[in-house]
Computed example of a mutant assay.
Amino acid sequence: MRQSFDLFFASSNDHKYHEAKRILNNFGIDLSFFKCVLEEIQSNSLNDIAIKKAKDAFHECKKPVIIEDDGLFIESLNGFPGPYSSFVFTTIGNEGILNLLKKNRNAKFVSIITYCDKNSLRSFVGNLDGTISNSKQGNGWGYDPIFIPIKMKKTFAEISNKNELSHRYKALKKFSSWYLDK
C-alpha cells in the first residue's frame, strides 16, 4: 500500500485534523497538519465553500492538500444551520440549537473533503442521517454532544466508534480510494 508524506490537511481545527489523521492512517495515508485560517465564503453550498478553501490552502502550502467542510442540516429548521454550522456553533452553540427544536429532531451531517494539487481539484461527500438529542450528552467537541447517528441511542460524544461511521469517515473513505488509485 502506498504511503504519502506530502499530503496536508489544512484547517484551524485541531479536532478535525486528528480525526482525519486517525481515519486516513487506517487506509495507509499519513497526513500532516497545515494549520491555517482559511477564508470561509458565505454560500449556501458546502461544495463551493470547500473548493474555495482547498484552492486557497494549496496556494499557501504549495503541496497536495485536503480540506474538510461540513454542516449539520436539521429537517425542521429547513436545513439550518447547514453551511453556516461553524458560525452558528460559535454564536448560539448546542444550547441554542436545542432551544430551537420542538418535535421533529431529524438531522443529517454532511462532510465534504476537497483535494487540491497543481493538476487536480476533487471533492468527496459523506452523509450521515440521525437525530438531535433533547439535551447535551457526553463531552465531545462541536455538535457531537447533541447528534445521535441513525440506529443508535447515544450521541457522537458518547460512542467510541465515531471514526468508523461518521460523515467525515464516509467522505475520507471515498477520498482514500481515489487517492490510492491516483
Score class of each variant (00 low, 15 high):
Leu77Trp: 03
Pro64Glu: 12
Thr131Val: 12
Leu77Thr: 08
Gly130Pro: 01
Gly79Met: 10
Ile113Met: 10
Lys102Asp: 14
Lys118Ala: 12
Phe58His: 11
Phe73Thr: 05
Ser111Leu: 11
Phe80Ala: 08
Leu72Asp: 00
Ile113Arg: 01
Phe73Asn: 05
Val110Glu: 09
Ile74Pro: 00
Pro83Ala: 10
Glu75Tyr: 14
Ile97Phe: 09
Asn78Gln: 15
His59Asn: 14
Asp129Ser: 14
Gly93Glu: 09
Phe80Trp: 15
Cys116Asp: 09
Asn104Cys: 02
Lys63Tyr: 09
Ser76Gln: 08
Thr131Tyr: 02
Asn78Pro: 00
Tyr115Cys: 07
Leu100Gly: 07
Val125Trp: 01
Ile112Trp: 03
Arg105Tyr: 03
Asn127Leu: 12
Asp129Glu: 14
Ile92His: 07
Gly71Pro: 06
Ser120Asp: 15
Glu68Met: 10
Thr114Glu: 06
Thr90Lys: 14
Tyr84Gly: 05
Lys118Arg: 15
Ser120Met: 10
Gly93Leu: 06
Val65Gln: 04
Ile66Phe: 08
Phe89Met: 05
Thr114Tyr: 01
Asp70Phe: 11
Val88Phe: 10
Leu100Asp: 02
Pro64Phe: 00
Glu60Pro: 03
Phe89Asp: 00
Ser123Asn: 14
Gly130Leu: 06
Lys102Tyr: 13
Ala57Leu: 01
Ala107Asp: 02
Val110Tyr: 02
Cys61Gly: 09
Leu77Lys: 01
Gly126Thr: 12
Phe87Val: 10
Asn127Tyr: 11
Arg105Phe: 05
Lys118Gly: 00
Gly96Val: 13
Cys61Thr: 09
Lys63Thr: 15
Cys61Asp: 05
Phe109Glu: 00
Phe80Ser: 04
Asp117Gln: 11
Asn94Tyr: 06
Gly93Pro: 00
Val88Asp: 00
Cys116His: 06
Ser85Ala: 06
Ile113Trp: 09
Phe73Gln: 03
Ile113His: 01
Asp117Val: 09
Asn104Pro: 04
Pro81Ala: 03
Cys61Ala: 09
